[in-house]
């Protein structure tokens, strides 16, 4: 096992879910985001009724956090520092469509990218720091820089970082855990490589 495998992550892209330990789940066909996440939900035997009312972005973030939580401890003082490129655009378009007839409040609430932080917090009883940034591309340095400051300030004890993008039904999810400051420093420089790796 190479050194960078010590980073605990979950990656969801191109019909595949992979972790630091390898492939966890895949579908043969290219499915649209919501269908793929629902299949994964069934495959992993997750039982959480709130899942079904979530939008695509939250479903993707929820499943990634769920799988990661089997390896690491998500707790009250886990900071959540996330980012993406397309904000909540997938759901924005759905809401825009619904506005023509019946504007749906249950869709509207998901027209903010940080709602997934709320969903993950509810599921894992996390009450710590929240931040959602928007960057054109995956920018782990921004998330790590912000995470480092929160850890140094003792604002949280560990951090769940996440890149969580959903655009034109293409999902690109990469969540990883920062256990402490030492862990964070060792991750710098490694993340772009891991994120870019086509998982075997």
């Amino acid at each position: 096992m190479s050194e960078d495998q010590s980073i605990k992550f979950i990656k969801i892209k191109d019909n595949r879910i992979t972790s630091s330990e390898g492939l966890l789940f895949k579908t043969e066909d290219k499915l649209e985001s919501i269908k793929f996440m629902s299949q994964a939900y069934k495959f992993f035997g997750i039982n959480y009724s709130k899942f079904f009312k979530m939008d695509g972005l939250s479903k993707a973030g929820f499943i990634a956090a769920e799988l990661l939580s089997e390896k690491i401890q998500l707790e009250k003082n886990t900071g959540l520092i996330f980012s993406n490129s397309s904000s909540s655009q997938d759901t924005d378009l759905r809401f825009q469509e619904s506005m023509q007839n019946f504007a749906s409040p249950s869709v509207f609430v998901y027209t903010l990218p940080n709602i997934v932080l709320g969903e993950i917090s509810i599921r894992h009883s996390i009450q710590s720091e929240n931040a959602f940034f928007i960057t054109e591309k995956f920018d782990p340095e921004l998330m790590l820089d912000y995470a480092e400051i929160q850890l140094k300030n003792l604002a949280c004890e560990n951090v769940l970082c996440g890149w969580l993008n959903l655009h034109n039904n293409e999902y690109d999810v990469f969540l990883w855990h920062v256990a402490d400051l030492e862990d964070l420093q060792s991750q710098r420089g490694q993340l772009p490589k891991i994120y870019a790796t086509t998982n075997e």
């Binding site: 959540l80 709320g118 969903e119 917090s121 929240n130």
Partner: peptide
């Protein structure tokens, strides 16, 4: 910052 972990 904090999260309620209660309702979205």
């Amino acid at each position: 910052t904090t999260n309620d972990a209660n309702h979205i």
